[in-house]
Structure formats: C-alpha cells, structure tokens
Design a protein around this nucleic acid. Structure first.
Lengths: 117, 117
DNA sequence: AATTGATATATCAGTAATGGATATACTACA
DNA sequence: TGTAGTATATCCATTACTGATATATCAATT
C-alpha cells in the first residue's frame, strides 16, 4: 500500500480543495473555476475573486499548479492552469481523507440511504 | 424524494462540520470532540479551544445542538451536547454535498482505486 | 463602428474564522 | 501532596474569505 499522505505547506481549505478539484480533469482558468465551484456545490460555496486569485497565486508559488494552455483558446484574456504531480498528490490525499469521513458517516447511518442500489 | 437541502444561518466550515459529526453518534463534550476530530482526520484538522467553544456556543444559539447528558457522567466538569433535529438535518445536508463531491471525484478517477473490491 | 452586457483578471479593505496562549480548576494516581 | 492530564473558557494575533472596485477584453446587436 502506497503512502498517500502528503503534507502541504498550508491548510487545504474548502476553497483550495475545490480549486484543485476543478483542475483535475484538465486545464482550467480562474473565472471558469469560480462558476464551476458554485454550480458543483449547489451554491453553498461561492469563491470570490479575492479568494480565487490569492489561492491561485499561492498554489503557483508552491508549484501545486503551473501555467497551462486552453485547448485552442479563443479568449486571449484567459489564463489556464493545470495540476502538477505534486498538486495532484495533495488533492488525492485530501480526497482520500474526505472519502474516509464520508464512508465513516455512512456506516454510522448519519446519511440514511435513499435508493442507493 | 425529500428535499434534504438545508440553508444554515452561517457557513458550515470544516470545524463546524466535524463538531456536528462528532455528535452524530450521541452526546459528546468539548474536550472529547477536540481529540476525536484530530484522531479522525489523522492530525490534519486540529481544533483549538478558541474555535471549539466559539463554535459550540454558536451552534447552541441557533439550536443546532442542545445541552445533553453524558451517560453516568463521572467527570462533573464535562458539558455534554447533542444534535437537535435541525442540527442533524444540517449535518446530513452537508454530508450529502460532500458525498456527491467524493463520488464525482471518483468518477473522474482522481482517486485511483487501490483494492476497492 | 459604437454601445452594451458578459467575461476575465487583479487588488484591496473589511469581516469572519481559526489557532495558540493563557487562565482556572478538577481528577487521578503515584 | 504534588503533578500530569483533563476540561471549560476567554482573548488576541494571524489567517482566510467575501465583496467592492478597477481595468480591460470579447461578443452581440444595431
């Protein structure tokens, strides 16, 4: 079993987590991340430009993300970012933690199943 | 299908979430919550007394939790709390959101399975 | 080609949340 | 009876976040 625990240099807050997750599929740009996170969390997490660009810069500094390129980018203003291996490791580590917590909660039947096959 | 979305009067941060979750099994007291959360999150979330008692008081104010009683309480100093129905609804709502995100991430294979039967 | 609204990045200030220090007191045990 | 651990509580410095603001570009309409 591989050791998947990674110690990031700062706390992986919900904002940081969702920014990383938004890039897990491929290159993403700031504005798109803002919109996707709000949609994905059903509005419960809205990342303002302040948090977003602060977070992106910090992720760049510690090389969890790097500059990327949007496939056939139309809009020249967009800046695309992508996960580095390190960034993906951090994301996976965090996700695994989250996954364990969800599993635990399910065991406790905090979540009462509704139609989970 | 019941509408499980609940709109809490403040943000359900990781600290708030874990405090609620710690009470999902039954009555819990502050110090115990601090320890359990640190253990459960493998040390990645340490709730200091400042956050803890601030959080507990706020949860009491909005009636997500209420005072409880430890079964045959030995230590008289302990103050036990338990979830109200409202508190449990908030917890379930948040958990479902988290669960969906974890599922989504799994679909994307951000989490590469290792021995998931 | 000018106007307009949405897109997009960026910074800043005010607010909210958190962590750590500190205080106080009780418990258990040697 | 001393001391380490348990337990609640408050305060303050730090950190994180939100929302306002600024600036500029793009797309669509006219």
């Amino acid at each position: 079993m591989a050791d998947t625990s990674v110690k990031p240099p700062f706390k992986i807050t919900p904002v940081v987590f969702h920014v990383l997750l938004a890039m897990s599929e491929g290159d993403a740009h700031g504005y798109g991340i803002m919109q996707e996170v709000e949609k994905r969390t059903e509005g419960s997490l809205k990342i303002g430009p302040g948090s977003l660009y602060f977070t992106l810069n910090r992720l760049l500094e510690v090389a969890m993300i790097k500059e990327g390129a949007g496939a056939a980018t139309d809009d020249a203003r967009r800046k695309y970012y992508r996960l580095t291996e390190y960034g993906r490791a951090v994301l996976e580590s965090e996700l695994r933690l989250l996954s364990d917590i969800v599993d635990l909660a399910r065991e406790k039947a905090v979540l009462r199943d509704e139609g989970v096959a």
